[in-house]
Write a protein that binds this DNA or RNA. Sequence first.
DNA 1: AACCAGGTGGAGC
DNA 2: GCTCCACATGGT
Length: 281
Amino acid sequence: MNTTEKDKLIIKNTKTFDIKSILDSGQMFRYRFENGSYIVQSGDKVAKITCLDDKNYMLSSKNLKYFENFFDLNENYDIIISRLEQFSFLEPALKYSRGVRILKQQPLETLICFIISANNNISRIKKSVNYICEHFGENLEDGNFAFPTLEELLKITEKDFVLAGTGYRAPYLVDTIKKIKDGFDLDKLKTMPTEQAKQKLLTLKGVGPKVADCVLLFGLEHKKVFPVDTWIAKVYNDYFDKTEKNRHKMRNNLVNTFGDLSGIAQQYLFYYKRENKNIGE
DNA sequence: AACCAGGTGGAGC
DNA sequence: GCTCCACATGGT
């Protein structure tokens, strides 16, 4: 799929890699379009993705290996998509979202971002997260900031989080950060069975079933989860059951339907529905 | 002016 | 377990 130089890598299979779709699919919040390239920040690392032509991207970073993993470049999405094609109702979503991928983000950053995401919208989430990085994270120059380390997060007060625009979630953030400091082992959740890891996450303030699924999927490499937000609920009412309102039931039915493809199927459907708000029935 | 946004905590049953 | 409701904030 790729050929390597020093700190540059060419991404060739653009059928299953579309940078705009990946970034706009609501799984990460720290990126921007600048001088014809996308700048992507994760933790304390930065990458630049430039579209060379309609078949090739150039990925450049001092941390190439990190971003090769971050963008899930060693996963074969052609196989995933061909397996999903058995579900005929997915056809339009697969066609539209083909270039979306599941990013492998850092656990703590993912957790904080998705606590902020609850009952919120993506542009506001971006603003809050970037405010937090710019005020409390390391300045990496060129307009880039690291996501704060745990030590830096511990210095953020409830008032600071309100200033960042997180509203009533501010106390949840302070409380959860303290629990992480007091020994809650996020990394350990990667190797735990999914349901067990989810129960652990649910003990944190600001983390309910939907946020837990997002953290598991985008930050802890669990694939058998199906975050049900307002958009996925609409999809469920469109395709499965017009009257169902219980998101917990939706989630379990969807996981039973898609198995280990749940996470990616969810992401394709989310992006498709959110970008085509008016399409339903 | 209500309603929405990648929902959750808490009270009451 | 379950069903209600309140909850910052900015955009439509």
